[in-house]
Simulated scan of single mutants.
Amino acid sequence: MSESDWTRGAAAVATLTFDVDAETPILAEGRHYADHPMVMSHQSYGPDVGVPRILDLLDEMAVAATFFVPGWVAEQRPGLARSIVDRGHEVAHHSYSHRAPTSLPPGAERADFVRALDVFAAQGIDIAGHRAAMWSASHETIGLVAEYGLAYDSSLMGDDRPYLVEGTHPPVVELPVHWSLDDWEQYAYLPEPRIGSVIESPIKVEQMWRAELDGMRHYGCLFNVCMHPFLTGRPGRMMALRNLISYAKECGDVTFARCRDVAARAREDVGTARRALPSYDVDPAVYPN
């Protein structure tokens, strides 16, 4: 195994990532929800209760993680990003407003992207990576990541190992994601706005993620799990996360890393795959809508 291999000899590399969305996904559905105390308290639980609880667990387990924070959230809570970085973790760009880039009018994605960078710059937070809101990257997104000198994106699903996204811009490392490793599909529920329908047992989620990790150990993959502090920060779910981390450590062939560190290793690895963004010339006679 080469020293430049992105896995550094591990069977799988685990990146624990936390999307600190707080109130932004709900406000993106409509700013009138700001007047709904139940809904807003459901979301504020994430940064106010979930994040400190997660940071304590990561300290206890001696694991570094990456927290994707919308600029609006960092702006509303000026000490939040610094509290994460000071504990040895990474803060990464997760838009400003948490509006999906594919839903924005021309020019709006750029403005939103830059506004978030300005917030982090004002707080002295070094940003290396990006994750699109709702993972809904547009054809402009990767170009913005490259233009503003970020090292990686984590929004696409073209592999289960890091790869380089090529285009007219310099190559960007992609740390791919997948719905099967997202706690939103397992735990999220609100009656209004309508989010989710079934709240799964943490025991089931832990078993499912263990199975995914075992498969990734077999195939030499990136176990890039996405969690939200307002969801996984709940007590029973935190126990499932603790058990998952313990299991990965007991395997003896899984390493944990921040996303920025995995991206740096993938860029150094000459074997990292290179791919362009999917692009199609779609015949409107075949697909009219």
Score class of each variant (00 low, 15 high):
211 A>L: 07
184 W>Y: 07
207 Q>E: 15
184 W>N: 08
210 R>W: 10
190 L>H: 04
192 E>W: 08
185 E>C: 04
200 E>S: 13
191 P>M: 10
187 Y>H: 01
177 V>A: 04
202 P>F: 03
185 E>R: 10
203 I>M: 08
192 E>T: 12
207 Q>T: 14
210 R>A: 10
179 W>H: 00
212 E>R: 09
188 A>N: 06
188 A>F: 01
194 R>N: 07
183 D>V: 03
183 D>L: 00
214 D>L: 09
182 D>G: 03
208 M>R: 14
199 I>S: 03
201 S>K: 14
196 G>D: 07
189 Y>K: 04
206 E>D: 08
193 P>V: 14
210 R>M: 13
192 E>M: 09
209 W>Q: 04
210 R>Y: 09
179 W>Y: 05
189 Y>F: 14
199 I>G: 00
179 W>D: 07
179 W>T: 01
205 V>K: 07
190 L>W: 02
181 L>N: 02
191 P>F: 02
198 V>G: 06
188 A>T: 04
190 L>S: 00
197 S>N: 15
194 R>M: 09
207 Q>K: 13
196 G>N: 08
180 S>A: 14
208 M>I: 09
207 Q>S: 15
178 H>E: 15
197 S>K: 05
201 S>N: 14
205 V>G: 03
215 G>Q: 09
197 S>D: 11
202 P>S: 03
177 V>M: 03
190 L>P: 00
204 K>V: 11
195 I>D: 03
207 Q>R: 15
202 P>N: 04
196 G>I: 01
193 P>Y: 07
199 I>F: 06
208 M>N: 14
213 L>W: 01
178 H>I: 10
215 G>K: 11
205 V>L: 07
179 W>M: 09
180 S>D: 13
193 P>S: 05
206 E>W: 11
213 L>T: 00
196 G>P: 02
207 Q>W: 10
180 S>K: 12
212 E>H: 14
178 H>T: 15
190 L>K: 05
206 E>M: 11
185 E>T: 05
180 S>I: 09
204 K>E: 12
191 P>R: 15
208 M>H: 14
198 V>E: 12
188 A>I: 10
195 I>M: 06
214 D>Q: 06
189 Y>N: 02
197 S>I: 12
177 V>Q: 01
212 E>Q: 13
193 P>K: 12
202 P>A: 02
185 E>N: 14
186 Q>T: 02
204 K>M: 08
186 Q>A: 15
192 E>F: 08
185 E>F: 08
203 I>E: 11
179 W>I: 00
183 D>A: 04
185 E>V: 07
202 P>C: 00
180 S>E: 12
186 Q>D: 15
215 G>A: 07
192 E>D: 13
193 P>M: 03
180 S>Q: 12
196 G>A: 05
193 P>G: 10
185 E>L: 05
179 W>P: 00
192 E>R: 08
